Amino acid sequence: MIWIRRLSVLSCLAALAVSPAFAFETPAKQAFILDYETGIPLYAKNAEEPMIPASMTKIMTSYVVFDMLQKGTLSPEAKFTVSQNAWEKGGWASGGSTMGLSIGESVSVMDLLTGVIVLSGNDACIVLAEGISGTEEAFAKEMTAIAQEMGLKTASFKNATGLDEEGHEISAADLAMLAKLSIETHPEYYGLYALPSFEWNGISQPNRNPILGKISGVDGLKTGHLSVSGYGLVASATEGDERRIVVINGLDSISARAASAERMMRAAFRQFEVVAPFEAGETVGTIPVWLGKQDTVEAVVTDDIAIGIESSERRDMSAKIVLATAVTAPIEEGQKIGTLVISGANGLSEEYPVVAKEKVSKIGLLGRAFEGFAGLFDTGVATSEPVTEAE
């Protein structure tokens, strides 16, 4: 049975309130905003459920190649030959996004990587996959293994391109974290995402990112589109000393993606922020103690707490302490006694352990007998049932 006791801390959170504004909404089926510096989510809409990423997959394909280049197991000057398979699945005749490679052509890793990132070339992805792992299937298994090691638990890749294949999926939240890790661990290659165009075999194609060059500070990352998933984008931008990462997916047109991406990126800096309501050791509530020499004990948080919120919805934040069971003496100082749950109207909820600020000894046999006898005449809440919510 779960006990819940509402905190007086609500007044502390409400004190952060600002003048009312419209809450952020997006037509995207999946959406996520991540604060780069802290790794704290600022907004989420169906962000934890696995989705079809389409060509946003290529961020992971590129990450694997980045890793190999950084470790020295692959040279940027190494050349791979374009196979019949790569040309058929990813060349001009395929009708999909392509670098425009020719069968038998020998292309450097760095050129292929640029073709993947800037042009979303399916052919370039397959050439890299076959050159590195022998087959695209084997490369996709390696992609999944590396993603899982990185903590991207929803990641399951069946190919290097993002073309529709059963079981090929990842969540919007994990895509945002992948983008963060790409920027963080491979800054020497991340700049490829900001290239405005790339020319191959005499044909120049523009970067497909619709807000690159349109919003100041945007420097990546990758679009995606399939008929089964709609239009999506992973984008990142800086403003001053802040960086935000935005993921959207499931839009119904190119124009809708462009408009939603622009609005969401601007909102990421204007409407969302990271706040720090509590410091480690701060008291966040008072918990009743059963059979203790004192009736209550102060609950404190163990770490500094920082959360992402939408500025206009500070008033709608809620905080409560959840107890798995009644708190019964004896209690040691620092003993976990519950969980602080902070929720916001932006769809996010975070949990933090709370511990006893001080030791509470158990009352003696006589005291326990008296407390039990007194309970027979208690006209308040029945002692046999927990308080499910108390102001």
Rank of each mutant, 00 (worst) to 15 (best):
Y231A: 09
L251T: 11
N249M: 10
L233Y: 02
I254C: 05
A235D: 04
G250S: 09
A261Y: 08
S253N: 09
R243S: 07
R244M: 04
L251G: 11
A259M: 13
S236D: 05
G250M: 07
S236Y: 04
A237H: 01
R243F: 05
G230L: 02
E242K: 13
S253V: 09
R263I: 12
Y231R: 05
T238P: 00
A259L: 12
V234Y: 00
A237T: 00
A259K: 13
Y231C: 06
A261D: 08
N249A: 13
S255P: 10
V234C: 00
A259I: 14
E262F: 03
T238D: 10
Y231G: 09
S236V: 04
S236K: 07
S236L: 05
V246P: 01
R243E: 05
R243H: 07
N249E: 09
A259S: 15
A261K: 12
A261H: 10
L233F: 02
R257K: 11
N249D: 12
S260M: 06
G232I: 05
G232R: 06
A258C: 09
D241G: 14
S253M: 08
L251F: 13
A261E: 08
G230F: 04
S229P: 08
S260C: 13
V234Q: 00
L233C: 01
S253W: 06
D252A: 14
I248W: 03
G230Q: 03
V247W: 00
L251P: 12
A237W: 00
T238E: 13
S253F: 07
S260W: 06
I248S: 03
